[in-house]
């Protein structure tokens, strides 16, 4: 059984000028531990899908079914790390626990183990400005993981980083997601990023967005996203997705 299911989801935006159809009959499944990438032309409503899944927006029609009733089902990760500059790294990563009043030694232990595992433990008492862009993005991911969500929603999480850092952070984040056994939905306009990370790519049409095509990938065997970029199928897949996006 799939973890999450979108069934004929549509969404209309209302503005004084009129009604815009943002999403039209979107349907797809997300399985446990799967990494899904959503690509589409800019402004087609990719981020809107994440807002719907997270429950911030309600669909105009259709259903979103989650087959799981854990309290923190969703964890969000944004384009910018959005660390709070006035808080230390530690205070930043426990933000969610603070909000949900779950500050206890068991949860702290989990966060400490994450910090240790991903090389941030020594920076616990530093402020965000003292960390590099890649490290900040890792802190942001640990802040999200602290609440132990089932599904991670990644909204172009690498696009604010320079190219070099992006490739590294891509590997880091992929590694963390896999070893913490999370399900992930990545929204991106970067085709090679989608191919290098995802198990499945959902290609959207221009607005009103519909699912144009779903591409199954099998590049896991090649290793990290960086290594996958070097495999022989990569450029073929890239062209395929590129063409689908073009027309």
């Amino acid at each position: 059984m799939s973890l999450l299911k979108l069934e004929d989801v549509s969404l209309n935006y209302h503005s004084p000028k009129g009604e815009t159809i943002a999403l039209q009959n979107i349907s797809f499944d997300v399985n446990d531990n799967e990494f899904i990438a959503i690509v589409g032309p800019s402004g087609c409503g990719k981020t809107t899908i994440l807002s719907l899944i997270s429950g911030i927006l309600k669909p105009s029609s259709g259903r979103i079914i989650r087959n799981d009733n854990s309290e923190n089902f969703i964890g969000y990760m944004f384009q910018r790390d959005h660390l709070f500059e006035w808080r230390t790294i530690w205070q930043n990563v426990i933000l969610g626990l603070e909000i949900q009043k779950k500050k206890n030694s068991q949860n702290f232990e989990y966060i400490n183990s994450l910090l240790q595992k991903y090389g941030l433990y020594d920076f616990k008492d530093k402020f965000p400005r003292e960390l590099s862009g890649g490290m900040r993005q890792r802190v942001a991911l640990i802040r999200t993981l602290a609440l132990n969500p089932k599904v991670l929603l990644l909204d172009e999480p690498f696009s604010a980083l320079d190219y070099q850092t992006r490739l590294n952070v891509c590997d880091d984040v992929n590694n963390i997601i896999k070893s913490e056994k999370k399900t992930a939905i990545l929204v991106t306009h970067d085709i090679s990023e989608a191919i290098s990370m995802a198990d499945r790519i959902i290609i959207l049409t221009p607005r009103p967005a519909k699912v144009k095509k779903i591409v199954e990938l099998d590049l896991q065997k090649y290793g990290t996203p960086f290594q996958r970029r070097e495999c022989s199928e990569f450029s073929k897949l890239f062209n395929e997705v590129w063409k689908d996006l073009e027309n």
């Binding site: 969703i74 969000y76 944004f78 959005h82 006035w86 933000l95 909000i99």
Partner: peptide, 24 residues
């Protein structure tokens, strides 16, 4: 987006005010 982040963690408007908007 920072407000959205707080909301996605289940923060109330009161919490958003005191933990985000005021220190910001």
């Amino acid at each position: 987006d920072k407000i959205l982040l707080m909301k996605s963690m289940g923060a109330s408007k009161f919490t958003i005010l005191f933990k985000l908007v005021l220190p910001y």
